[in-house]
């Protein structure tokens, strides 16, 4: 088994400036220049996961007038493809909803995901969501692989949400 090669890693507050820097770093990474389609997909998924941390992490700090989430994101080249991992704290009550959404997406075929994506584009954004409710659907579609999910229980009603997507 080969050792994974780290392409990007960040642990901290996901300000917009950090996400813009991550975008630049990925786009210019020498390992990714030979496959423009992989690069496009990777950029999309990394930014979606980073913005999920920015918006929905339960561990937030105040940056100016907005609250910004803290978490962890890494990108590694492995034998089985490029793995993007994101971790952030969530409140335990959100765990079942996230699990159900991801299990449903993982069970759908390409055509069903496309249909769901079209419906979501025309629908109102889900309640308690700053985003469009499209992110997970599009990540699942673009990666072509199931979204891997793990929850690690903390204390005080907090859980660590770990998402891994392989391209």
């Amino acid at each position: 088994m080969g050792t994974p090669i780290s392409i990007y890693q960040y642990d901290g507050t996901f300000t917009q400036r950090v996400i813009e820097g991550m975008h630049e770093e990925i786009v210019n990474h020498p390992l990714l220049q030979s496959n423009s389609q992989l690069l496009k997909t990777l950029v999309f998924i990394a930014i979606e996961l980073a913005q999920n941390i920015q918006r929905y992490s339960a561990n937030k700090i105040k940056c100016g007038i907005t609250w910004t989430g803290k978490g962890f994101l890494s990108i590694e080249q492995t034998e089985n493809g490029v793995k993007i991992k994101a971790k952030n704290q969530i409140e335990q009550e959100g765990q079942t909803r996230i699990k159900n959404v991801i299990e449903k997406l993982n069970s759908l075929d390409e055509d069903s995901l496309k249909e769901l994506s079209k419906q979501q584009k025309k629908a109102d954004a889900p309640q308690n969501s700053v985003g469009a409710g499209l992110g997970l659907i599009e990540m699942r579609r673009k990666s072509g692989n199931p979204i891997e999910l793990e929850f690690i229980e903390y204390e005080n009603n907090i859980t660590l949400l770990c998402i891994t997507i392989t391209i």
Partner: peptide, 16 residues
């Protein structure tokens, strides 16, 4: 050349 999912939603609104 690149749009995130939230932007896709608003592009859809413009088209609509």
């Amino acid at each position: 050349d690149y749009v995130n999912s939230s932007s896709i939603k608003y592009i859809s609104d413009i088209i609509e």
